[in-house]
């Protein structure tokens, strides 16, 4: 779709600040709302889309009939630090277990590690977010143990102290844990893991391994 350049007011885009090189930089105009939808690293102002990061411009067309999404892929400067957001997949380590909730600290967001470990993001998994069925029969101690590494989704930003996480999906749950004897556990089935050394079985809410 052709973008009408004439509609831009004179003061909006200065011709004295030219585009220098193929990468886009913050403030650079990359399209019009009539042609694209804004993705990550892009913001909209007065009908135009502008880059808010340095990086390569990407245009993706999904199957739906909607407009293609334009986003800016960060060109690996020191990188964008990670903040958990609703819907993000995170890895978290269990710190405390109580009958109604599990406390954990978030280690990574969408595969990006959280570098600043001095003041970690805290997360909680509430009883009703552990699994989607037979919620009234859940025993927290048969799902998680302290130090377990859990793959979870952020359901909401929660209260001022912690993010609310959920493991109520097949591929969410414990991804790494150690048995009481201190050896790594291997997933057996959705609710059981086996010690790699002693073959002792322990209950867990296991994440279905991907392929």
């Amino acid at each position: 779709m052709e973008v009408d350049e004439q509609r831009v007011p004179e003061d909006e885009q200065d011709k004295d600040f030219p585009q220098l090189l193929p990468l886009v930089t913050p403030g650079e105009r990359i399209g019009h709302v009539s042609a694209y939808r804004a993705g990550a690293g892009v913001y909209e102002r007065r009908g135009h889309l502008y880059a808010s990061k340095v990086g390569e411009k990407l245009i993706e067309q999904d199957d739906s009939n909607q407009l293609p999404v334009v986003s800016v892929e960060t060109a690996g400067l020191s990188g964008s630090p990670s903040v958990p957001f609703t819907g993000a997949t995170v890895l978290a380590q269990v710190t405390r277990i109580s009958p109604r909730r599990v406390d954990c600290i978030i280690l990574s967001v969408e595969g990006r590690p959280i570098r600043d470990t001095s003041n970690p993001y805290k997360g909680i998994i509430r009883l009703q977010d552990v699994r989607p069925f037979e919620i009234d029969q859940i025993d927290m101690l048969e799902c998680f143990r302290p130090t377990d590494i859990v793959k979870a989704k952020v359901v909401s930003l929660g209260d001022s102290r912690s993010f609310h996480l959920s493991t109520a999906e097949q591929d969410l749950g414990v991804v790494f844990a150690k048995s009481t004897s201190g050896h790594p556990l291997v997933a057996l089935k959705w609710n059981e893991m086996e010690c790699s050394k002693t073959k002792e079985r322990e209950p867990r809410k296991v994440a279905k391994p991907s392929d």
């Binding site: 930089t25 913050p26 403030g27 690293g41 913001y43 102002r45 502008y50 808010s52 990061k53 340095v54 960060t74 400067l77 020191s78 990188g79 964008s80 630090p81």
Partner: peptide, 11 residues
């Protein structure tokens, strides 16, 4: 800020 990859409106 650009190096940190923080979203900014403009330089």
């Amino acid at each position: 800020l650009i190096d940190a990859g923080i979203n900014i409106r403009d330089s």
